Computed example of a mutant assay.
Amino acid sequence: MLSNPSLTPPCNKDGKDEVNYVGRFAPSPTGPLHFGSLITAVASYCDARAHRGKWLVRIEDTDIPRIYPGSEDHILRSIDAFQFDPDAEIIFQKDRLNLYEAVIEQLHQQGLVYACQCTRKMLGSNHIYQGTCRNLDLPLEHQAIRVKVDDQEICFTDRLQGTHCCNLQQDLGDFVLKRRDGIINYQLAVVVDDYLQGMTHVVRGADLLDNTERQIWLGQLLGYPKLQYMHLPLAMNDQGQKLSKQNMAQALDLTQAPQLLQQALRALRQPEVDLDRPAQMLQQAIAQWDIALIPHCTELHGHYL
């Protein structure tokens, strides 16, 4: 486990662990928030509040070249427009790069990561990394950094999707924590920040379901506590594609926040709430929150823009 005091999760004034539930909404600013993002925000917020827990917001912006101009501002304005109430200051991952570098150095000292000089062209179409550079002992500078995985099955029980398993060595191979261009990989940043922010529960879209075993593996290597996961079904457009920035999903119209909030709760199959100010609607939704009503599938089919 990390011994650096700056890499220690929060405690309350008595030095005891925080509340039993800490959740988060962690959008990436590669475009403005869309309806699929709203579903995740609503579900994560209601689930945390229904458990009398804390809810935090984190902007996952380590992939700096992909940040879409104005998207961070739209995310922050959306939090205000829908009257979500985070329990701590919003953090930005691009301000925390030194923390991720410290974790990579820790893993390096333990012999758990190595430098990789393989390019995409060299790897070709094979999506399973064969460990080409694992024993070359290359210098870390100006190379990708991969973490070693073992030949073992990792399983977790998702609160919606049931049991999910993966053998990382057989299905993926050693995976990248830092790219050759210096960009910190999502897998590392999310694991470190979930630990440092004291997360206990992760509620997010089913498109991230297959990332979970990698994050569990990293957490095990670092001695972090286990998390509870709930992967929500994805809202799909009329072409059967998930709503995303890449598929040109429409930005949330913040002037229609109450109506959009009502639609998001309907998509989650929650009991009806009265059309009102978002804060009042959220309070009603929290009082009625029931994850058993959320479709236990990976896709929501309907008319979602």
Rank of each mutant, 00 (worst) to 15 (best):
T8P: 03
T8E: 14
P10S: 11
V19W: 11
Y21R: 08
G23S: 14
F25G: 04
F25L: 11
T30C: 12
T30H: 10
V42K: 00
A43L: 03
G53K: 05
Y68G: 06
D87I: 08
A88W: 05
E89Q: 15
R96G: 08
A102F: 02
Q106G: 00
L123F: 06
Y129M: 10
G131R: 03
T132S: 10
L136H: 13
A144K: 00
V147A: 02
K148F: 05
K148P: 02
C155I: 08
R159S: 13
H164K: 12
G173T: 04
F175G: 03
R180Q: 15
G182M: 09
L188G: 02
L196E: 06
G198P: 04
M199G: 01
T200H: 04
H201Q: 12
D207P: 09
Q215F: 09
L221T: 07
Y224H: 15
L232Q: 05
A235Y: 04
N237H: 09
Q239T: 13
K242Q: 14
S244N: 10
K245R: 14
A249W: 03
A251Y: 06
L252C: 08
P258I: 01
R266F: 09
M281V: 02
L282N: 01
W289Y: 08
D290R: 07
I291P: 10
P295E: 07
L300K: 02
